[in-house]
Design a protein around this nucleic acid. Structure first.
Lengths: 334, 334
DNA sequence: CTGAAAGCGCTTACAG
DNA sequence: CTGAAAGCGCTTACAG
């Protein structure tokens, strides 16, 4: 309590113990040969006096920062927020264990100046990209600079370490279950095909039809639904075509679809069934409860962080890691 | 493009120009006397060769990091997320302009070990607290350590720099408007009184009654509503008492109230009117649209960051900054 | 106006 | 097993 202002340094410890800074450093890092008794003494002193090495100085000497950069987009829908948040929680959990901290970078889609600044200032040892694009300036920049990085979510760029849920399989399994339950006319509503993830989901949808040797009806697939007007129009079309079930590629779309159905006086699941993709708290209050895929986003974040730290420490890492999912059947498809 | 690996340093610049490192440093920082022509030469060379000083080294020499820590709670409701997010956007905007970066710290309510680690590791120059408690371990720790910090939201701790929206006035004005429109029996639903903000809102509510010389009905005030069951029960009571309007202290409560009212077959605003507090995207899809207070959270974040940076640079800052609000009347109180 | 030198607090060959 | 010294890339009194 007495000396809050002046921080104790490695020299102080060395002087107090009558050894060299080298020895103190070795006792702490565990690197290099050092007498057992000496190490104990140093460690005991450090413990007692609550000495913490200055990470900044350590970093300068080792050309490391013990920070990782997490890049988040500056524009996003409410529905994305829990995803980013949970991913960051997972990242933080792993990073914290390894004494790394998270430096936040908020980037607009086509403006990577923020990321560039952080990299040029050498403020981080690696980067996690929380959202990627089909054509992605961040990925190109980081690859070129040879900075360790990993993407959360899939990308088609080569030689990029990526961690993702298996959206294709997930969508295939969900669709297959619905088909098996006798629904034939299933509509699919999705967002921008500029996102690899939406392409993958669509692919899973098609595969489930292929698996049973049927054709899906391309008139019932509505992609690139950006904005409520588009969604409402899609629902109008759907209602005119005796569709049995609607699969929404995310909970924001689902939320809007539910609203529109209510407006049109349609009951779920009696008039039409519906399934969604994230099981997020956004739909928590829905009545009836909504059948949905469930992904462990925190796990996704944790895994991406593990992969990044491994890269930073020059270990081999798998280029692609696919995490599992669960299909949660609820009332909306009964 | 040729030398991506090896970074150019101040020595390289000095050597190339045949001047000393001191001179280069001065040309960049603008501190200390330096010949005009010399400065131009250095600056031109730097520009041409895209030299960026190593911020870490600079920080070590100046005992600064050019990072600020933003502390977020690890547990929160979906409704809080847009708030945190927007505040961070505002912080980032100001911090970025001053070449500061954001280090994220995710803390559980009573566990400040993450924050302690960051501070002890000297990774940041100051801290922004995004959520505070009536009894707050973070505030006590930071005060004791004499680390510059500011809270977003009010606190009753002394000598703490805080930036907040004027929730008391906001709630008073909203209530006054409703009273003036002839509603007399107004119910108030709020969250935990452990949050200073909820106490302030309640205070504003009372003041609006005082202003017109009436008593508010304490049986219609429901605080500490944690969880849906409590909210539903409050609504039951409210419906048994001919209440004309319900004020919800946040959009999550409002969302649940709306759901319950729908279940009970009550129409808004014909059977009962309702107003809420955040105008957040959570209620965006509501029909009818919900009368609400509106706060500029991004501005709140920006202001808190300005105050922190001023503190870090040892400038005088106001202990308390109150930001404005707007009352947005919509269909739910017609 | 400019520079040599010490210092920020660590790490790490190198030598013993 | 241990230490003196150089180095990480900057800044800043101090001297000229």
């Amino acid at each position: 309590m007495e000396n809050e202002k002046k921080n104790i340094t490695i020299s102080d410890v060395a002087d107090a113990l009558g050894v060299s800074k080298t020895t103190v450093s070795r006792a702490i890092s565990g690197k290099g040969r050092i007498g057992d008794e000496t190490r104990q003494r140093v460690l005991a002193y450090i413990e007692e006096h609550d000495y913490k090495p200055n990470v900044i100085a350590k970093g300068l000497a080792q050309s490391k920062t013990f920070n990782i950069c997490v890049v988040m987009p500056s524009s996003y829908a409410l529905v994305d927020l829990p995803f980013f948040q949970e991913a960051i929680m997972g990242i933080q959990e792993i990073a914290g264990m390894m004494e790394y901290d998270i430096l936040l970078c908020i980037c607009q889609e086509n403006d990577i100046s923020g990321l560039e600044r952080i990299i040029k200032n050498r403020k981080v040892d690696g980067v996690i990209l929380l959202r990627t694009f089909v054509k992605d300036a961040q990925i190109e920049f980081l690859s070129n600079k040879q900075i360790p990085f990993v993407t959360v979510g899939s990308t088609t760029y080569k030689n990029v370490v990526q961690v993702d849920n298996d959206h294709k399989s997930a969508c295939r399994e969900l669709t297959s279950i619905l088909l098996m339950r006798g629904m034939e006319k299933i509509a699919l509503l999705g967002g921008s095909e500029n996102f690899v993830v939406n392409q993958n989901r669509f692919r899973g949808f098609r595969e489930s039809y292929e698996a049973i040797g049927k054709e899906y009806d391309s008139d019932l697939v509505f992609m690139n639904l950006e904005g409520k007007a588009f969604i409402d129009r899609a629902v109008d079309t759907i209602l005119s075509k005796d569709v049995e079930c609607i699969i929404c590629m995310d909970d924001a779309i689902c939320s809007q679809v539910l609203r529109k159905l209510r407006q049109e006086g349609k009951q779920v699941p009696t008039d039409i069934k519906i399934a969604s993709f994230y099981n997020s708290s956004l739909l928590e209050n829905s009545l009836p409860s909504i059948t949905s895929l469930d992904f462990d986003t925190k796990e996704l974040g944790a895994e991406s962080c593990k992969n990044l730290l491994a890269q930073i420490e020059s270990q081999e890492v798998a280029e692609r890691t696919l995490l599992s999912y669960e299909v949660i059947m609820k009332e909306s498809t009964k």
